[in-house]
């Protein structure tokens, strides 16, 4: 098995950028669809995010995380950045429609081992914690909007989101400390 495609992108290997598009444009698109309000905005975001990924490809270390996890992290950050910027420019009081809803199916292998660990961690959370995390992470809603949509007090929403994410982080840390290898 050759070097991960991100390392080859960083090295300027011919064809690597196209391979990266073929392999991960669908992932970036799928994530972008959850945190944008329409397809046009998602397309803008994907283009921006792919460039960001290529420019930072040299930072990827296959010993630390899967490419999917690395890309998901960069993508989320960029989407949050965009959301903040766009929120300043327009009224986004309407809740974005979840294009398809969380699938509820076990993550496929292409999404990386961390996704499986995270899915396992989510099962250990209370239903309310799962709901809040889904609205926050998957649909990109602010805590305030989640409070409005669910009727939960804002403080409760914050607590659920924080504790839920901290739990996922702890399980990922334990999995890593047990010497699990991460395959791209």
């Amino acid at each position: 098995m050759g070097p991960p495609v991100l390392q080859r992108v960083a090295a300027g290997e011919p064809g690597a950028v196209q391979e990266c598009i073929d392999r991960y444009a669908g992932l970036v698109w799928s994530l972008a669809r959850r945190m944008t309000t329409n397809n046009a905005e998602a397309e803008d975001a994907v283009q921006e995010i792919l460039v960001e990924i290529w420019r930072n490809a040299y930072r990827y270390d296959a010993n630390i995380a899967s490419e999917a996890a690395f890309i998901a992290m960069v993508t989320r950050r960029r989407l949050i950045d965009r959301r903040r910027r766009l929120d300043r420019q327009r009224d986004r009081s309407a809740l974005p429609e979840d294009p398809s809803g969380a699938t509820g199916v076990p993550p496929t292998a292409e999404l990386g081992e961390e996704a499986r660990i995270a899915a396992s961690a989510l099962e250990q959370l209370s239903p309310d914690q799962q709901r809040v995390l889904r609205l926050s992470i998957y649909q990109g809603l602010s805590h305030e909007k989640i409070a409005t949509a669910t009727g939960m007090p804002l403080g409760t929403v914050k607590t659920h989101a924080r504790r839920g994410l901290i739990k996922v982080r702890e399980l990922l840390g334990k999995w890593k400390s047990n010497g699990q290898e991460v395959n791209s």
Partner: peptide
């Protein structure tokens, strides 16, 4: 924590869509 958030989003995504 950012990695955990990214992994959580992947877990909820389950599978990717074709753009």
């Amino acid at each position: 924590m950012d990695l955990a958030a990214g992994a959580t989003m992947l877990a909820m995504l389950g599978k990717t869509e074709t753009p």
